[in-house]
Amino acid sequence: KRYRAVYDYSAADEDEVSFQDGDTIVNVQQIDDGWMYGTVERTGDTGMLPANYVEAI
């Protein structure tokens, strides 16, 4: 699945990823209600991200 960031996010922990509004997130997997795991296409960084900061595309 592919998602697009709708807000900027700065990683708060080493297992999270930072991204900017408009970034595409690929290979996304749902972890639980609030978190997903995926790769930021622009940077190649992979990690956890907050589900409410992205939307499906």
Rank of each mutant, 00 (worst) to 15 (best):
M36A: 05
D21K: 15
V28G: 06
V54Y: 01
D23R: 02
I57T: 08
D13F: 12
A51P: 05
Y7H: 14
E16L: 05
A5G: 06
D21L: 15
N27I: 13
S18E: 04
T43G: 02
A51W: 06
A11R: 07
G38S: 00
V26A: 07
G44N: 07
I57M: 10
E14C: 11
V6W: 06
Y3D: 03
A51G: 08
Y9L: 03
Q20T: 09
Q30G: 07
E16N: 05
R2T: 14
D33Q: 11
T46Y: 08
D8H: 09
A11Q: 06
A5E: 02
N27W: 08
D23S: 02
S10N: 13
P50H: 08
Q29A: 09
V54Q: 00
T39P: 01
Q20E: 09
I25C: 04
D21W: 15
D8G: 11
V17I: 10
I31A: 08
T24Y: 15
M36E: 00
D15V: 09
P50F: 05
L49I: 14
E16Y: 10
V40Y: 00
Y7W: 11
T39N: 02
M48K: 15
K1N: 12
T24W: 14
T43L: 01
N27E: 08
D45A: 13
E55Q: 12
D33S: 11
S18V: 03
V17Y: 03
E16K: 10
T39D: 02
Q30Y: 14
D33T: 10
Y3I: 02
G47F: 03
M48Y: 14
S18M: 01
S18D: 06
D15Q: 13
Q29R: 12
V17F: 05
E14Q: 11
T39C: 08
D8T: 12
D15P: 06
S10V: 14
D15L: 13
K1C: 14
G38H: 00
Q29N: 08
D21P: 11
D15K: 14
V17P: 02
D8P: 14
Q20F: 13
N52V: 11
D33G: 11
K1F: 12
Y37L: 12
A11K: 09
S18C: 05
G22K: 05
N27D: 11
T43M: 03
A11C: 06
D33L: 10
D32A: 13
S18T: 08
V28M: 06
D33V: 11
